[in-house]
Design a protein around this nucleic acid. Structure first.
Lengths: 160, 160
DNA sequence: GAAGATTGACTTCTCAATCTTT
DNA sequence: AAAGATTGAGAAGTCAATCTTC
């Protein structure tokens, strides 16, 4: 016993904690966002991506990557947001295969309203448990997992 | 600008990364476990908890906490596992409200078969990205999030 | 043939409500 | 009335297959 055993235990524990932390937070945020603003966590995430995107629009396939869904999942998600008037569809001039998702003024408004609440809750949650260095470490470590850092807007290049 | 802005950004990023990392890993593990052993990640998790539990059984409500589901979710999960013969139900002698979930011999076998595969994949995934200290740090940080460390078997008390 | 988008069928899980036992 | 278990109804997302355009 147990060089490998320890590593196994630790890997299993890391995955379990990731899974359970996600489940708990998702449930809690979903409940709150849903009640207060009629949005799911994923809705919020999608609006967030679109807000940050050039001209408030993204190709549907890029949005899929950015919010961590399959193309299929994004299709369903956008159907809901379009029906709610928060997003609209637009075709590409140069490639008839692609369809853009564009955030509408109503979408921007809805996002702004929800963001105030949601971000404050998020900040409080982490602030209660981590100092700035720890939070940075957590972000950094999570970022190395596959898929975790996908869809983050590239930082504007700072140096020449 | 932006003492609060930076903290907000960081909190938002932490949550996004947690969410996306979870989505990606869950999809990948689910696919593999499903194909190779006919189990979902949650099935595996439940069997794992039962394997570690005293006498291979837990109250359904405790299992819910341990795998990060609602009572309702556990009910559905166990229905599937019982139908597959991996788990059976048992009533409590002392409290007629509670129902135990007991892992069966077939369940132990199924778990053992799946665990070899799954744990190896898990260990490889983390080993590729983190050294032992980093993995320990990740486990520790995740453990502070609500719900993350629930359902971990208490370590046997080491000191008298 | 590959990329993007979409749909049908299905699974999993949640919430809210209910029933039983304490 | 609170705790545990369960069920009906529905949301959300997956996979596999399909259609269209490149």
């Amino acid at each position: 016993v147990t060089g490998a055993g320890v590593a196994d235990e630790q890997a299993l524990r890391a995955w379990a904690r990731l899974q359970h932390a996600h489940a708990g937070l998702a449930r809690s945020f979903n409940g709150h966002l849903q009640r207060a603003h009629g949005l799911t966590v994923t809705d919020f995430d999608a609006l967030h991506q679109l807000m940050r995107a050039e001209a408030g629009r993204m190709r549907r396939t890029d949005l899929a990557g950015a919010v961590g869904l399959t193309p299929s999942g994004v299709c369903r998600l956008l159907a809901g947001l379009e029906q709610a008037g928060l997003v609209r569809s637009a075709d590409s001039a140069s490639d008839a295969r692609v369809s853009y998702a564009c955030i509408t003024p109503a979408g921007r408004q809805a996002f702004a309203a929800a963001a105030a609440d949601h971000v404050a809750g998020l900040r409080a949650l982490f602030a209660e448990r981590f100092d700035a260095d720890e939070l940075a470490a957590l972000v950094h470590l999570l970022g190395r997992l596959p898929g975790a850092a996908s869809g983050e807007r590239a930082r504007v290049a700072v140096s020449a």
